[in-house]
Amino acid sequence: MKVNYPGSIMIQTAYSNSDVGRSSKNTANQPVARTTGKRDSVTLSNTTRQLQKVASAMDTPRTDRAEKINALKSAIANGEYTVNPDQVAEKLLNTFMG
């Protein structure tokens, strides 16, 4: 996931300028990493979990939507599809006016 906010450039710069994850030929003078038995953990907020569910649902193809689209394509191709201008105008107004 890409995060875009003003501080992200500073974080990227800090990581790119650090020696984290870089290998060095001279490892004799390097301190040895010791494991303490502690583990990193991440706790996601409820909002983040809900957003992940939404993103996952958006990636799942909906067959009922495909059927509706195919029916509309068929009606348009056969000249059977009609547009009600009053309904279009009403929905446009509701969209822009709230």
Rank of each mutant, 00 (worst) to 15 (best):
M10R: 03
D40L: 09
V83C: 09
Q30G: 07
A57K: 11
V88D: 05
T13W: 01
I11D: 04
A57V: 06
N46A: 07
A28C: 06
Q52A: 12
T60M: 14
Q52I: 15
D40A: 08
V88Q: 03
Y5K: 08
G79N: 12
S23R: 13
D19Y: 00
D40S: 08
I11G: 02
K2Q: 06
T43Y: 01
D59E: 15
K2P: 02
V3Y: 06
Q52Y: 11
V42Q: 02
S23V: 12
D86I: 00
E80L: 15
G37T: 00
L51V: 11
T27F: 12
T60V: 12
Q30T: 12
S16M: 10
Q12T: 02
S45D: 05
V32D: 12
P31Q: 04
S18W: 03
K2E: 09
G37M: 02
N17P: 00
E90F: 09
G98F: 05
A77H: 10
T13R: 01
V20P: 00
L72K: 12
G7Y: 03
A55N: 12
S74D: 15
V42L: 08
R34T: 07
A89M: 08
G98K: 15
F96P: 04
Y81D: 08
Y5W: 05
N84S: 09
D86C: 00
L93I: 06
V3H: 04
G21E: 01
S23G: 14
V83R: 13
I9N: 04
T95E: 03
N70M: 11
N84I: 00
D86P: 04
D40N: 10
D64S: 15
E80G: 10
R62L: 10
D40K: 11
L72D: 05
N70K: 15
S45P: 05
K38M: 05
S45G: 10
A57C: 07
S41L: 02
Q50H: 13
M97V: 08
K73N: 14
A66W: 08
N4M: 02
R39E: 04
S8D: 04
D64P: 14
K53D: 06
I69G: 00
A14P: 01
S18T: 14
R65S: 04
Y81P: 04
L44G: 02
G7H: 03
D64R: 15
N94R: 13
S56A: 12
M97S: 10
A71H: 14
S8V: 06
Q87H: 13
R39W: 02
A71M: 12
M1Q: 03
A55E: 07
P6W: 05
D19M: 13
N84H: 08
R34S: 05
R34K: 09
V32W: 07
V83P: 07
M1N: 03
V42A: 05
N78S: 14
S16V: 09
A55G: 10
T43F: 02
E90L: 02
D40C: 08
N84Y: 10
S16G: 08
N29K: 11
P6G: 07
V20M: 11
V20L: 13
D64Q: 15
K2I: 10
R65C: 03
N29L: 14
S24R: 11
P6F: 04
Q87R: 13
R62Y: 07
T48Y: 01
T47L: 11
M10P: 00
D86H: 09
T82P: 07
K91Q: 14
S24T: 13
